[in-house]
Design a protein around this nucleic acid. Sequence first.
DNA 1: GTTTGTGAAACGATTCACAGCT
DNA 2: AGCTGTGAATCGTTTCACAAAC
Lengths: 206, 206
Amino acid sequence: MRKVAESTVRRLSLYLRFLEEFEGQGIATVSSGALASRGSTTSAQVRKDLSFFGSFGKRGLGYPVPELAGRLREILGLKQRYQVGMIGAGKIGGALVQYRGFRQRGFDIVAIFDSDPAKIGRQWNGLTILDIDTLEAEFARRPIDMAVLVTPADAAQPVTDRLVQLGVKAVLNFAPVQLVVPDDVVVKTVNLALELETLSYALANR
Amino acid sequence: MRKVAESTVRRLSLYLRFLEEFEGQGIATVSSGALASRGSTTSAQVRKDLSFFGSFGKRGLGYPVPELAGRLREILGLKQRYQVGMIGAGKIGGALVQYRGFRQRGFDIVAIFDSDPAKIGRQWNGLTILDIDTLEAEFARRPIDMAVLVTPADAAQPVTDRLVQLGVKAVLNFAPVQLVVPDDVVVKTVNLALELETLSYALANR
DNA sequence: GTTTGTGAAACGATTCACAGCT
DNA sequence: AGCTGTGAATCGTTTCACAAAC
């Protein structure tokens, strides 16, 4: 089951969302073709993606909606909730703290850190912004599964090193830098300016 | 020059950032290997990426930093500034309006629209939030090159249809939906919950 | 001696097509 | 008859390796 492409994992997340919609409508089974058309892919792609993890369908019938949704949650590691620490209490951090999509999907932001004395001590969504200097002490009290990095570029790598030291194995990074981490730590970087540049490339090359 | 992979375009954006750093340090030439190590790729990848657009280097020497940066700006369509309209004045929109990275890279947010009467008329970063009902009238006065969509999921497709009607050719979408647009319109969707799910997949499968 | 530019080879992902189950 | 599961074929991307330029 090893070595599944990231593109496959992303599609599995999409399939899960569609399955949850079907579930809400009380639809009991769904074919690969139906899932495919909702996600602008092909039925063969859907079947191949699922086949990496087992065979969940019935030939001639399709896939049982609730069972497949459950299996996808298992595969994606969504049967548990995650404790998420946010590093940086700027604008983007503020938006993410209030973003319902995270909590809805099982990701609970349980701590916010910043280095700015003007921010430390303030309340955000019921959470007190903590001094980044107390990161190690906080971790001792309250383990954290994932970190969301929303610091300025130059603070990102040093704070990442501290997080790695503390045993964090997953980082969602919004700082526009390439973070260096050990092999057993997974980083996903979201670079918003870069997304806009792929759009301007597309506009310029038509 | 047609049909360059999106992965290639993303790397070109990264190379440009590194070149700008080198430029700031007054470095005159750079080798493919030096660019590669900054972006965690390989020198062959760098050379192949650039070769889609021409030959910019000197054998034995490397690439002239300012010239290559200029060519990349041209290729990426960054020699002009873009007028960006933001649709939705929620938390994420607020963060993006103040995000300096956009303006720095040539993307100017020039209008903000929302449907909530409590928000319409407020000032954000010097911009008045406009009634979404005046979208068409605003466009007549002030053309917009790109739209940033930060609406609730159910509003995303209808407003996209209106934007397409108005001639918008590029949309950066933060709503968790698959937008349907004509072939000549380019959409880039950023789905934050999905990014977290690729992390939880990685944690669950080790 | 160093580093580019690029065909060719290797690798990886998607699509095809069909046998096998329901 | 309908739809899955999956090898085989196809397509696309990355890496290799080396001749050509400096």
